[in-house]
């Protein structure tokens, strides 16, 4: 068992537009697999199909050997599929600690209890504080999520995803909109997680991709045109033409 994620023949159309065209892809257990491609290549559509927000027209998705193609989003989370959002999606009125606490509680269960006191769930809050202690947000724990900087929100996105204890983490452009320093911090945070879980990383920042990825797949017009190591991708003429070429020119 070396594949945490296997996608076969995934297909999605919006009217006449083919957003995902027969995509076949696998992510090895423990690897960081990057998915790159020009704007409009269908990366976000693919992520949304993997996590269950969008239903594919055809094809199958296996998570750790189980067919999850027709599962609702929340069940995929239970099976160990975590995600971050490209546009940060937080509980804006809650503090950082409440955000993380709820994510931990959601995984821990007992969410239908109406007679307990949420502040008294010791194991939940211990785990929350543990997660925060190892993060860049430790001294921001009592700030409202709405008051965080963009970079901090991106970090919180990541912590929320980790709180669900995913085996595979879908990262939808975690560096988007970050400054140089913040990008370095995010790269460090993600490298620190290497080996603990597998990641499928959608990212435009090539520096980050080359620094992190074990393998890279290139998505153009809804199709995977190649999968390989950083060097293979860099030297592939098709990729240069479709993607890098336009940037170099």
């Amino acid at each position: 068992m070396t594949e945490i994620l296997r996608i076969e023949g995934l297909q999605k159309r919006f009217g006449g537009l083919v957003a995902t065209d027969n995509v076949t892809l696998d992510v090895h257990t423990g690897e960081i697999h990057a998915l790159i491609g020009p704007n409009g290549a269908g990366k976000s559509t693919l992520i949304n199909q993997l996590c269950g927000e969008l239903r594919q027209d055809a094809g199958v998705i296996h998570l750790a050997g189980r067919d999850i193609s027709h599962m609702p989003a929340h069940e995929r989370v239970d099976l160990g599929l975590g995600r971050t959002f490209q546009v940060t999606s937080l509980l804006e009125d809650f503090t950082v600690r409440e955000n993380v606490g709820l994510a931990v509680q959601a995984r821990d269960g007992g969410n239908f209890r109406v007679f307990d006191r949420v502040t008294a769930r010791r194991s939940v809050w211990e785990e929350t504080d543990h997660l925060l202690a190892g993060s860049l947000l430790n001294d921001r724990r009592d700030s409202r999520a709405a008051d965080l900087s963009h970079g901090e929100k991106k970090q919180l996105e990541l912590i929320l995803a980790l709180a669900t204890q995913p085996r595979l983490l879908l990262l939808d452009e975690p560096m988007a909109g970050l400054g140089h320093v913040e990008t370095q911090q995010m790269i460090e945070t993600l490298s620190g997680l290497r080996g603990e879980l597998s990641m499928l990383l959608v990212e435009h920042d090539m520096e980050a991709v080359f620094a992190l990825a074990d393998r890279i797949s290139v998505l153009v017009y809804g199709q995977i045109i190649m999968t390989g190591t950083a060097d293979e991708v860099r030297s592939d003429p098709r990729v240069r033409e479709a993607y890098l070429g336009t940037e170099d020119a």
């Binding site: 989370v77 994510a103 239908f112 209890r113 109406v114 949420v118």
Partner: peptide, 20 residues
């Protein structure tokens, strides 16, 4: 309660709660 906390979360961001 725990349920109350989930409910407040749903008001703020239903999509996020699904992702949790």
């Amino acid at each position: 309660s725990s349920f109350g906390q989930v409910l407040k979360g749903i008001r703020q961001n239903e999509r996020r709660m699904e992702a949790m």
